[in-house]
Write a protein that binds this DNA or RNA. Structure first.
Lengths: 354, 354
DNA sequence: CTGAAAGCGCTTACAG
DNA sequence: CTGAAAGCGCTTACAG
């Protein structure tokens, strides 16, 4: 179906070895006339070199494997977008295998190895802490991960999650908030714990406690955050500010507050995290901590490419995050407000335990 | 670096051909003892078959190419998520090349061909109408596209965009709206034109005209839709309903209306399109037309896989869309409202040309 | 049940 | 400047 180099050589009237050299641009291997004849033959036959054969000879193919969670998560999609750009830009191709619920990461990795990828980028927070994957990663294969892999031998690229929580805390503290809630991702995820720790420690340093019942666990989705926030609002006096660990969850928080008659930011401030494109256009525009997803993916790919070239790369690199102030945060309502509960809330007295 | 089949054979004390057959599970090629010895040898050497060599022999590798726009567009990410699931599920691997601004689609396609992919899935609305790509697609290579490719020889899988516009129109007509705007994607895109036509024709059938100056062109983003809507609001009497061709743009519309003092849905209804996860949690929850992205990607992959097996597949398949009613649409305000412009709007008289 | 031959498409020394 | 040899790792007939 595809013309081979022998077809090209035959048409040009040379040996296939000569054709190979000319087609690969080796200088001075053929007279200008022969050179041109070979190129013309290749063109007229629609010759497309066989990367499989070439890879066989070279023992490796110019390919990197990406072992990734589902792209329906926008953060994952952005990581991969950044990584893909670097990989393509370096003239490599990306072999992408995606982790479906119930699929075996080890066999996915093996598939990548069968294709003799030169390195593997792991974009799989869902596999965080997976020991089977960690054990299956051969030490001879360059790997970079965007989430933590047990054993700590795999270079990690990420963003500074502790700082993320700290930035939210500093902002809220500066505005004068003291009654703060946070809606988190799943507890077992490192990113959840790091963002929570950054928030809690910085609040504590500012003299504000973040009790356990001010922390609502959700699942990164608007739906989950909405439900978690409603539950808290039904049980407790409303806070004056909420930090949601993602923008998507902030949207759910906004909805829950609105349904409970709380205005943002007048009655309650909301801080998101990620700075997805929509954040700026929500009503009100969302104050959030910007997480550089594409840059992170790109950086991870760059390091992987370096590592594939035999360079030493750092075991851990965190990209900086920054606060983006918009209209969803403001000073807390005057203390008097705390005496009368928000309109649809159940009647509760101030002395009630938080 | 990787053990070869010869290493395995040597360790097991058999010829490499025998090892090959046993490793490939050919029945009855070796005695049980030999069989076990070969498997044990492979295991102890960490043998991973070389897909490149195997592909060389078979003249093809169990790989499909995905030529895709950037995943930072959530619609693209979802198409690919669905497709990837099918491809992985069929035991194939996906070689993904992504189209960066300024990259040459023809050389990207060629890269896929060098890897001898068995088929190509095109997920590239940005390349819609690209004749160079169309010309570069060899007729011998199975291809399925999610966007239109000139020449009409490439099977297309998509959703029913005309119906999308029609559903929005029917809903708005049923509620009694007669003064409607729409915010569209780029005009040159087919999906834009189809959704617009569906809207306009159905409105016309209901006796409502959609004049050209009620159509604001944007670029799929919240930002673009916000700007486009503001411009219209500054120039004209506000409408009683807006159909945004994507949910992201609906968010920009919501913001523009809010800034102009218009309440949704009391003063103006808004219909989105896509039904992204957040739609349900916006304030107010967004009425939208659901577009089945993942299903579409999955279906396209299934058809591509069929086509690779030599089956005939339809040249065009459109998946159904459906209206999801939420709180952002309602009956228009009573006609009296039209006499007094919305609060911050400039003073305009009713008789003014629309 | 097991092995030797041929070949997939290509590249890389090595000769002339 | 051009060609013949060897080999990458594997599979597929074909013999024994």
């Amino acid at each position: 179906m595809y013309a081979s180099i022998k077809d090209v050589a035959a048409l040009a009237g040379v040996s296939f070895q000569t054709a190979s050299k000319v087609l690969n641009g080796q200088p001075g291997v053929a007279s200008p006339a022969t050179h041109e004849r070979i190129l013309a033959a290749a063109r007229s036959l629609g010759y497309v070199p066989n990367a499989l054969a070439r890879g066989l000879v070279h023992q490796v193919s110019p390919t990197v494997g990406i072992l990734s969670d589902d792209f329906s998560d926008a953060a994952i999609a952005r990581f991969v977008t950044g990584a893909q750009r670097e990989v393509d830009g370096a003239g490599h191709s990306a072999l992408v295998v995606s982790i479906a619920p119930g699929s075996d990461p080890v066999s996915l990795l093996r598939r990548l190895q069968e294709h003799r990828v030169q390195g593997v980028l792991v974009v799989a927070p869902s596999l965080e802490g997976n020991r089977r994957l960690a054990a299956a990663l051969p030490s001879s294969l360059p790997v970079v991960s965007l989430s933590s892999i047990p054993g700590a031998r795999v270079p990690l690229v990420g963003s500074d999650h502790g700082r993320t929580g700290a930035l939210a805390a500093e902002h809220l503290l500066a505005l004068g908030h003291r009654r703060i809630w946070t809606v988190t991702g799943p507890r077992r995820r490192r990113v959840t714990a790091s963002r929570l720790r950054g928030l809690r420690d910085t609040l504590a340093a500012g003299g504000v406690e973040l009790p356990d019942d001010a922390v609502a666990e959700a699942d990164w989705t608007s739906a989950g955050a909405y439900v978690a926030t409603c539950r808290l609002l039904d049980e407790q006096l409303p806070p004056t500010a909420v930090f949601a660990q993602t923008d998507l969850m902030a949207i759910g928080v906004l909805r829950a507050l609105s349904e409970h008659g709380l205005r943002v930011p007048d009655d309650c401030s909301v801080v998101g995290c990620d700075d997805f494109d929509v954040a700026e256009y929500l009503t009100p525009p969302l104050t959030t901590v910007r997480v550089p997803f594409e840059e992170t993916g790109a950086r991870a790919a760059t390091l992987l490419l370096d590592s594939m070239r035999g360079e030493r790369i750092p075991l851990r690199e965190l990209l900086p995050v920054r606060l983006v102030e918009r209209a969803s945060t403001a000073r807390p309502p005057p203390p008097a407000d705390h005496d009368r509960p928000a309109p649809p809330a159940p009647t509760t007295s101030l002395g009630e335990p938080a």
